[in-house]
Nucleic acid binder design. Structure first.
Length: 286
DNA sequence: AAAGCGGGGGT
DNA sequence: ACCCCAGCTTT
């Protein structure tokens, strides 16, 4: 059974410890969920600890500069998340008196928060009953319920399906959400699922059908090597390393093979608010 | 509905 | 080499 498996086998992750919630409350959960968006849990932990030590409340973070926030984000990837988290902290101070809201619609209205993060905060911090659906959950449901090897692209159906499966009790529902995610992260994995260890193997439609290869509905991400994203990452790395100093434009990845791509990267970083140009050169935003 | 957006680790 | 990762915003 899923609950007993979760109690005995769940990873001891930082954000599951009572001391974490006692110290940082919903703000700690919110920051962890931002960092966990498309970044593996094991990579997040050291960054999360450093972040919360520096900015233990939304109010503390709201006082920080954009440059500080982008610099602290370091190499976590998708640095716009740092901007959105900063903006969300400011919005929490302005709209909610510095308290992370509990209401899902209020959470959804914050910058950088979507269906997953909003419900994750409401469930894992406040203990309310909502369907929390991430990539692991979608894969588990695709297999156990639909008998498919891979999930379809995210849709509202994921939420209604998970909602229908949730136990009535708030606490049990929260556990069910977490257990389903954990199952997908550790047993029902994308590449090499370990069905021999699965606590719901007896109830799995995909396993019962002989684990058919139903095709992968996922859209393939474009190659990173040579991409604009790689160029942006290289520019931002230079700015982080130089901070708080500006870098002369001629010294920003001058050896990049494609000069037009380099310029495009710089322009798009400025447009996103991740960089600023002045007489001194290019720098993290004031 | 599809595209754009980091970076690292596993296979 | 390729795939995947506790997604979100914009078009």
């Amino acid at each position: 059974m899923l609950p007993s498996w979760f109690r005995s086998s769940a990873r001891d992750l930082l954000w599951r410890r009572p001391a974490f919630h006692e110290t940082y409350g919903a703000w700690g959960v919110l920051v962890s969920e931002f960092m966990l968006q498309q970044t593996p849990a094991t990579r997040v932990i050291p960054h999360l600890e450093a972040w919360l030590h520096r900015w233990p409340t939304p109010a503390a973070m709201a006082e920080a500069t954009t440059a500080q926030v982008v610099h602290q984000w370091a190499n976590l990837g998708y640095p716009r998340r740092a901007l959105w988290l900063h903006r969300a902290a400011i919005e929490i101070v302005e709209r909610h008196g510095g308290v992370v809201p509990r209401d899902v619609d209020a959470l959804l209205a914050l910058s950088g928060i979507g269906d997953y993060t909003a419900r994750a905060v409401a469930v894992f911090s406040y203990g309310d009953r909502h369907p929390v659906v991430d990539t692991n959950t979608r894969r588990v449901l695709a297999r156990a319920i639909d008998g498919r090897a891979h999930p379809s692209p995210p849709s509202r159906r994921d939420l209604t399906l998970m909602e229908a499966l949730l136990p009535d009790d708030d606490e049990e529902a929260a556990m069910f959400n977490a257990a389903t995610m954990e199952l997908g992260a550790t047993i029902c994995t994308a590449r090499a699922p370990r069905c021999d260890l699965c606590p719901v193997a007896d109830e799995c439609a995909w396993l019962a059908a002989g684990r058919p290869d139903t095709g992968d509905a996922r859209r393939r991400q474009a190659a990173y090597e040579g991409s604009d994203r790689q160029a942006r990452g290289a520019v931002l790395r230079v700015l982080r390393d130089a901070a708080p100093d500006a870098v002369p434009l001629t010294a920003v990845i001058p050896e990049w093979p494609d000069a037009r791509q380099r310029d495009r990267a710089i322009d798009s970083l400025i447009a996103d608010g991740l960089a600023e140009a002045d007489g001194e050169g290019l720098a993290l935003p004031r």
